[in-house]
């Protein structure tokens, strides 16, 4: 059982206020969509949640079975898919997944990798370079890299950008499959993606 708590989180860039006093509380099995126009701070909030940006005020608490975790101990449970995150263009899909698993401390077998490629619809493309993929296929491989950790908290920034209808359907299936047991946060402007979350938090109002 994981719990993510934001207490009075606010962020300023110099004198410019991005947001103020955000309070959130999510437990495993709960999901949240963060909505708001461009520039309302969706990505900034996500960066604060994943511990890669220090909030100007307030704090982010992450706990497992009521035990507080610091960044290095909650990182293994956390995955992110977003437009500013990418894989290595000069490595093949399979090499990318192997490398990401290895630095995460995992040792997947060839079948595990084949299985995860199949899940995202990239079966048989394991030996192609990431840079040769279309943007939609790259997005799919990012999902594969996120899921290979078997994360307990999943964060998506614009989860269906660059994807065709078939790809969208797969992403919806993946998110719905993880929903019962994980914490899921989706930053999006697409109305249809609101259905992936239990509640919606609106930024910039």
């Amino acid at each position: 059982m994981f719990e993510l708590e934001l207490k009075n989180v606010s962020k300023y860039f110099g004198a410019r206020k991005v947001f103020e006093n955000i309070n959130l509380d999510l437990k495993s099995g709960q999901s949240l969509a963060i909505a708001g126009p461009n520039g309302s701070g969706k990505t900034t909030l996500l960066r604060i949640i994943i511990g890669l940006m220090v909030p100007t005020g307030g704090e982010v608490l992450f706990s497992k079975e009521k035990q507080k975790l610091d960044f290095d101990s909650y990182r293994p449970f956390l995955s992110l898919v977003g437009p500013y995150l990418s894989l290595y263009g000069s490595l093949t899909a399979r090499e990318n997944l192997k490398f990401i698993s290895k630095v995460n401390g995992l040792m997947p077998s060839e079948e595990d990798i084949e299985k995860i490629l199949e899940q995202v619809g990239l079966e048989g493309r394991g030996n192609d370079y990431f840079s040769d993929f279309s943007s939609g296929m790259q997005q799919r491989l990012k999902y594969a890299a996120a899921l290979i950790k078997n994360p307990s908290i999943l964060i998506f920034d614009e989860p269906t950008s660059n994807l065709d209808d078939e790809g969208k359907k797969r992403v919806f299936d993946i998110i719905n499959r993880y929903r019962p047991d994980s914490i899921i946060i989706i930053a999006t402007n697409e109305k249809e993606e609101y259905s992936l979350a239990d509640s919606i938090y609106k930024l910039g109002e």
């Binding site: 890669l52 290095d72 990182r75 956390l78 992110l80 290595y88 401390g105």
Partner: peptide, 16 residues
């Protein structure tokens, strides 16, 4: 520049 730094940050400790 390519955005791979982000996935590396979420994968392992800085010292690695």
């Amino acid at each position: 520049e390519t955005g791979t730094a982000m996935i590396l940050r979420l994968s392992c400790e800085g010292s690695i």
